[in-house]
Amino acid sequence: MAKKGVILLNLGSPDSTDVEDVRTYLDQFLSDERVLDLNPIVRKLLLKLVILPRRPKESAEAYSKVWTDEGSPLIVTSVKQQKLVQENTDVPVYLAMRYGNPSTPDIVAEMKRDGIDDLLIIPLYPQYAMSSYETAVVELMEQLREQGMAEINTVLVQPFYKDPEYIDALWESIRPSYEGSGAHLMMSFHGIPQRHVKVTDPSHAHCLTTKDCCTTPHPAHGTCYSHQCYATAYALMAKGGLHHDDVTISFQSRLLKDPWLKPYTDFEIERLAKEGVKKLKVICPAFITDCLETLEEIAMEGKEQFLENGGEDFELIPCLNTHPAWINWLNNKIERWEP
């Protein structure tokens, strides 16, 4: 009889705010060809000569602003998610990070020791991107093969960016803070380089090439991060009865000087404040779990920018984290997978 297991996949975090730990993490993260998709020699030189000599210290300072007594917010909350899901199922639930710890290789080794031969894979990314969903899944599959588990049965949960039950859970987590507040709502998605969108377009002739590419039906949407972000936003707006004038959709976390998906969150925060928006609430629907990008980049830097430019009231609405509706969503996936 097959022994079942479930694995939750997320991005990861440094082991501490120590500069050397952050350097190790950034080296692993930015060495990934699906993240920094440059010529391997150029990527290595850029890392060793430009990014790693100075970026770790800056990032360590940023991480120190959000670090908790228990550790990294992303890891701490992810472990809580894992435990809550485990409380509602007899199937072993594992948690692995693409970078850092608990590492994917270590967790695959643990599953092998436990005799898992039927695996449900749940990447904790609502939208598909080669630098998040794809790289986490590829790393898992490579580790299964390298550790002699290539023959096990696997079921992969696809990006759930417009799954009605996910949208319901997302709205339930947002509604108490937003409904009746009179605030403008910003949906800030994690940004990716425009070239990533073009690379993941199997036709190489639709995404960011044709007019209204994100809203014109096309097979490329199955792997188009931009389309899936807008689909999440529009589904959430429909669920909450939100008017387009009351919502701004944007993209955050640019790196280097290449063109990334627009509009940029920091530009939009400044624009809204200067145009007279006094109350702004921000959600980050590309993230399931609050992390550096939400807690420092938005809740701290974004708030400061908004207030400096004339805004008066700024709030980051937390990610799904351990919201009961989200935990139920995960457990429902497991229940429907079980025979």
Rank of each mutant, 00 (worst) to 15 (best):
K3C: 08
K4G: 15
V6E: 05
L8G: 05
L8A: 08
N10Y: 05
G12L: 04
D18A: 13
E20K: 11
D21V: 14
L26W: 00
D27E: 02
Q28P: 00
F29T: 00
F29Y: 01
L36C: 11
V42R: 09
R43D: 05
I51C: 13
L52Y: 03
R54S: 10
K57L: 04
E61W: 00
E61A: 14
W67N: 06
W67P: 01
W67V: 03
G71Q: 04
S72V: 05
L74E: 02
T77R: 12
S78N: 02
Q82Y: 08
K83W: 01
K83D: 00
V85W: 09
E87C: 07
V91P: 05
P92T: 06
V93M: 15
M97W: 06
R98V: 15
P102F: 09
M111C: 09
D114F: 12
D118M: 09
D118K: 15
L120E: 15
I122L: 14
Y125G: 07
P126Q: 02
Q127N: 07
Q127T: 08
M130Y: 13
M130R: 15
S132C: 09
T135Q: 07
A136G: 15
A136K: 13
A136Y: 14
V137E: 00
M141Q: 05
Q143W: 03
E146K: 13
Q147R: 05
G148C: 00
G148D: 00
D168I: 06
A169S: 09
L170S: 12
L170E: 07
P176G: 10
S177G: 14
E179A: 08
G180N: 06
S181Y: 10
G182F: 07
A183V: 11
L185M: 14
M187I: 04
M187A: 13
F189P: 06
G191D: 01
H196T: 13
V197A: 08
P202K: 13
P202L: 10
T209I: 13
T209K: 08
T210K: 12
K211N: 13
K211A: 13
D212T: 08
D212N: 12
T215C: 14
H218R: 15
A220N: 07
H227A: 13
Q228R: 14
T232R: 10
A233H: 05
Y234E: 09
L236F: 07
A238D: 06
K239Y: 15
K239P: 02
L242E: 01
H243W: 10
V247F: 02
F251N: 08
S253T: 13
L255S: 15
W260T: 01
T265K: 03
F267C: 05
E275A: 07
V277E: 02
L280P: 00
I283Y: 02
P285A: 04
P285T: 04
I288E: 09
T289P: 00
T294H: 06
E296K: 11
E296R: 10
E296Y: 05
M300R: 10
M300H: 10
M300E: 05
L316Y: 07
L316C: 03
I317P: 01
I327C: 15
W329R: 03
N332F: 10
I334Y: 04
I334E: 01
R336T: 12
